[in-house]
Design a protein around this nucleic acid. Structure first.
Length: 277
DNA sequence: ATGGTTGCACAGCAA
C-alpha cells in the first residue's frame, strides 16, 4: 500500500495537480492538509472519477484536512478526543479543522495540520504544544482500545525536529518557532506516548519538504523538513520505500510543500501457509 | 532590500 501526505495549500487551486500525482505515483491513500475550503467547496467529482473516496473537514478558508483513498474509508472522524480549540482574546475556544482520521486499507490513518506557533511567546505557541500533546494522548487511547490494529499519522507538524531539518536561515535556534526545544520535546513526547516512529527518516536522512514562497527560497534550497509520516511498529517494520517528491515544488502554481510518500508491504494471508502441490 | 510570495472573506490576515 502506498500512502502519501501533502500540505496542498488550497485544493481548489491545485486539485488537477493532485489528481495527476495520485496516478503518476500510484497512491492508495493521500492525507491532505490546508485544503482551505468548506466541505461543500471541495472538488469531489474528479477524485471520485479516478476511483477515490474523500473524507474532508473544512470549516472556512483556513486549515482543512482530508483523507483520499481508493482502498475504502470507514469509521471517519473529525478532530480527536480532547482536541484543543484556539482561545481568541479570552472568548470560548473554537475548534479548528486540523485533524481527521479513518479506517482505510485495514489500518487507521490521521491527517493532521498542526497549529503554527507563529512565534515564541505568541499565544498560538501554547496552543500548538497543547494540541500536539493531546493528539498523542488521543492516538494512544485509540490504540489501547483497538489492539492489533496498525496506524499512522501523516501531516504538516510545523516542527523541524532535527538540526538537519532546518535549511531556512530565517529559523534560528532559540529564537524562532518550529525549532525551539519545547516544540522538539513535545514532538518526541507525542511519538513516545502514541508508540510512533518516523518511517521516512531511516530511508531518507536528508531532505526538506517545505520551502517558503518568498525570497527564492526553493531556488536557494532554504527549506525545512516539517511534514512527516509517523507509524506504529508493525507498519514501520513493513516499509519498503519512501520518497520526498521534490519536483512537486516546481512548475505552475506549486504548493509550498511537497508530498512525502511511503510504501508498505502488502499483507499476505498465505505468507506462512505451507506450499501445496 | 525593515523586503519578499501565495491564497482566501478581495482586505488584511495567515503562512
Amino acid at each position: 500500500m502506498r500512502v502519501a501526505t501533502w500540505n496542498i495549500n488550497s485544493i481548489r487551486t491545485r486539485h488537477a495537480r493532485v489528481e495527476e500525482f495520485l496516478q503518476a505515483a500510484d497512491i492508495d491513500v493521500l492525507l491532505l492538509q490546508e485544503t482551505k475550503c468548506r466541505d461543500d467547496q471541495f472538488p469531489l467529482e474528479p477524485f471520485e472519477a479516478l476511483g477515490y473516496d474523500v473524507f474532508h473537514w473544512g470549516l472556512n478558508q483556513w486549515n482543512g484536512v482530508a483523507i483520499v483513498s481508493r482502498v475504502g474509508i470507514s469509521h471517519a472522524e473529525q478532530g480527536f478526543v480532547g482536541m484543543p480549540g484556539f482561545d481568541k482574546n479570552g472568548a470560548d475556544p473554537q475548534p479548528e479543522a486540523r485533524a481527521v482520521s479513518a479506517m482505510t486499507g485495514g489500518i487507521r490513518v490521521w491527517s493532521v495540520y498542526v497549529p503554527n506557533g507563529r512565534a515564541l511567546g505568541d499565544p498560538h505557541m501554547p496552543y500548538k504544544l497543547s494540541w500536539l500533546s493531546q493528539l498523542g494522548h488521543a492516538v494512544s487511547q485509540w490504540s489501547d482500545q483497538n489492539p492489533g490494529v496498525e496506524y499512522l499519522i501523516g501531516g504538516d507538524f510545523n516542527v523541524a525536529p532535527e538540526p538537519s531539518d532546518v535549511g531556512d536561515p530565517g529559523f534560528v535556534e532559540g529564537v524562532s518557532t518550529h525549532v525551539s526545544p519545547e516544540e522538539r520535546a513535545t514532538i518526541k513526547e507525542l511519538l513516545h506516548t502514541a508508540h510512533l516512529t518516523d518511517v521516512v527518516r531511516p530511508l531518507l536522512p536528508e531532505g526538506y519538504t517545505y520551502w517558503d514562497y518568498t525570497q527564492g527560497k526553493f531556488r536557494k534550497n532554504h527549506g525545512m523538513r516539517i511534514d512527516f509520516v509517523y507509524a506504529s511498529s508493525g507498519l514501520a517494520d513493513s516499509v519498503t520505500a519512501a520518497s520526498i517528491e521534490r519536483e512537486q515544488r516546481t512548475g505552475e502554481q506549486p504548493s509550498d510543500h511537497v508530498p512525502v510518500v511511503v510504501e508498505f508491504a502488502e499483507e499476505s494471508d498465505d505468507f506462512d501457509a505451507p506450499m501445496v502441490f
